[in-house]
Amino acid sequence: MNKEKNTKINIARLIAPVISSRDVMGTLTTEINAADTQMVSLDFKDVDFISRSAAHELLSMKEDLIRERNKKEIYFVNLNSPVRDMFRVTAANRAAPKSKKPEFKAEEVDLTTLLREVRI
């Protein structure tokens, strides 16, 4: 494995300009593992957005690849502002999750009341 060179993977071309799903990260892992370099740059040029789920999966995948025996160095490059913000928020929530489960208290109503009174 070449330890000096860097493989660049264009995420928008490989997957799509909006990354929503966790399961597409399998395609990315395959591509990263196929690279014969230790350093791999994930190029987010032309990626408009990544969802919280997809960002979470990608961060988990990055940690797994770092832990593996032939560990890879993964870099994220050319991130636009929404993509950068999503990685930051997701990483922060992973590092320090909220300790309390969120509350949910719904009022029970019958259909007739709902149709008569609610206007959305």
Partner: peptide
């Protein structure tokens, strides 16, 4: 606005397949 459109649609469609 784009993020506010993309995040819910992306998550809710992902839920279908998960």
């Amino acid at each position: 606005t784009a993020s506010a459109i993309y995040q819910p649609v992306g998550e809710l469609v992902t839920n279908i397949f998960e």
